[in-house]
Amino acid sequence: MLETKNLVKKFGSKTAVDDVSFTIEPGKTYLLLGPNGSGKTTWMKIAATLTKPTSGNVYWDGEPVGIESRKKISYMPTESYFYNWMRVADVGTYYRDFFEDFDEGKFREMLARLDLAPDARVRDLSSGMNAKLRLAAALSRYASVYLLDEPLNGIDLVARDQVLDTVIAAMTPDAAIVLSSHLVEEVESIASTAVFIRDGKILETRDTEELRDTDGQSLADRYRLLMR
């Protein structure tokens, strides 16, 4: 469904994504694992059509990602991006106005689950609260692919469970979730496939259960081994 073919992205002389190819299939939860600067965010931004590739591309249902794929792919960026004048509830209205698959009821439920007051001003939110709001907005769509870039960034230890529970609740058999994180141990339990990335290249793609059963390794063990 979401296919990456020979994707290359260069920023000047630096290659952020280096000839990457892999496929995201429905019903699975993918974990993009790699150190800072490994190319996780760049890949997500290209898949979300915010960044243009240097060569190769990401394809949605056989077509290069573009306006049509934005209707099916829900992206949670790692940075705050809402307008400063917005209140939390305005974010829901904005998503309702632009995305046909957005469910306002689901959004309200998520706000309650994540302890976000609808009348709070976006500019007054802490980074953790802002991350929760971005997550709520992205997961309140009935998308085919959810791209969640570092959803645990800025979230305190107690609230991380809250966030992960929210992600688990959003899992459906016909949707794929792609999570990027460097907090490997925290997200290990929800991943079905792990994609290890370093220096813009995919080192390995592994089924997490198979990794545990055949190699007897946790994702964290494997991560340490590969990133050494």
């Binding site: 979300a48 306006i67 049509e68 209707k71 960026p77 940075e79 705050s80 991006y81 307008y83």
Partner: peptide, 13 residues
């Protein structure tokens, strides 16, 4: 700025 995402994530040309 990152507020560009508000426009360029939407399915609008």
């Amino acid at each position: 700025t990152k507020q560009s995402y508000m426009l360029f994530l939407t399915p609008r040309s």
